[in-house]
Write a protein that binds this DNA or RNA. Structure first.
Lengths: 192, 192
DNA sequence: GGTGTGCATTGAACTAGATTAAGAAATCAG
DNA sequence: CTGATTTCTTAATCTAGTTCAATGCACACC
């Protein structure tokens, strides 16, 4: 049950068995049916989660009521609104399950306790957020400099499992284009 | 000399005089003429800096040789490539001074020493990177969902001093549009 | 078994923004 | 002060991507 999350945190720091035991004892296991909102605009994000199984989407709603998908979450990904969680201020994000999803979650309290009892986790979480920042910067750069078709090709190469699991218009939203145009791009690629 | 940086770090955590003394003793002061590259693609970023005075731009170069500006830096801003600095891996970014610039800088070693001697700084740096992530996510969201004119208006409202200090085509690059189109937008706004 | 309801595709008309080119204005080096 | 270089503007043409239908498709649901 803890295999995948252990492997995930062990990637950057090596832990002793006792440290992992503390880690496990502080994790809360959660099963959530599909189409459930884990977080809404205006709410304070009271969890940080690791996806054991399932699929989620994190999105904004713009002033015209349009959804813009910021990221998908699948197995072995971390989930939450870091700023809202740590500063305990209202989030602007929505997080919704797309499939039935199993998670390990922390509350602010249990995370703090973990960091207190096993300070090495500071490094794990710092690396996570650094990688998240680098990935977001990279995506911003590409959404500015690359045409939609290349962004799409890169997306399916990077996340080959996602197109089979989520409606296509979610991917269009993630790429910042209309569903019709994504359909046209796909038609064009298929012809080759 | 340390006034502004002290105010900056004190915003999120309160420090004692002795702690600030340690902090100051580890900062290196640096004066850099304009049009100097502080970091290049392929280099490992060996500094994290705070801008006392001056102006910088951080940018990528895409596969066609086009520059895309990721952010500007002015007084009271932090500078660097967080991931490259901490993981000591090659950066994909360029950082260049636009004006003569004065900085305080850390090396990886001095930053580590600071964190060791005054662990409260962990929190300061974590908050900085969290805010950076939230701002970058927000910008990605807007670059996907808002038209260029609104993004421009928001930019000049948020950073009123920058348009007076940097060439206009840098702002176009930051907004992800061509300089000609930005000029058109400005013409249109001025007419009203 | 029908019948909604959400999803993908296709095409036509449209628009935001790119590209190219040329001239005007500003800035800089000597 | 002067020529050179960089920057900004304007206008014409072009294109990536949108919007607005209409149609077909695949299910879930009773």
């Amino acid at each position: 049950m803890y295999e995948s999350i252990d492997k995930n945190v062990n990637r950057s720091v090596t832990f002793l068995k006792e440290e992992l035991d503390i880690f496990h004892s502080l994790l809360e296991h959660k099963a959530v049916p599909k189409k459930t909102l884990l977080l809404q605009d205006g709410e304070i994000c009271n969890f940080e989660g690791y996806i054991i199984k399932g699929c989620t989407r994190t999105y904004y709603i713009d002033e015209n009521g349009f959804e813009v998908i910021l990221q998908f979450g699948i197995e072995d990904w971390w989930l939450g609104d870091v700023a809202s969680f740590h500063e305990q201020k209202p989030s602007k994000l929505f997080i919704e399950t797309i499939e039935d999803t199993e998670l390990f979650v922390f509350s602010p309290q249990t995370k703090e306790e973990l960091l207190f009892r096993v300070p090495k986790f500071e490094r794990v979480f710092r690396l996570l957020i650094q990688r998240n920042l680098a990935a977001t910067q990279n995506r911003l750069f590409k959404s500015i400099s690359q045409p939609a078709q290349e962004r799409y090709l890169e997306f399916i190469e990077k996340y080959p499992s996602i197109p089979q699991r989520v409606p296509q218009h979610y991917i269009a939203s993630y790429l910042g284009i209309s569903p019709e145009f994504l359909s046209k791009i796909r038609g064009k690629i298929a012809k080759k």
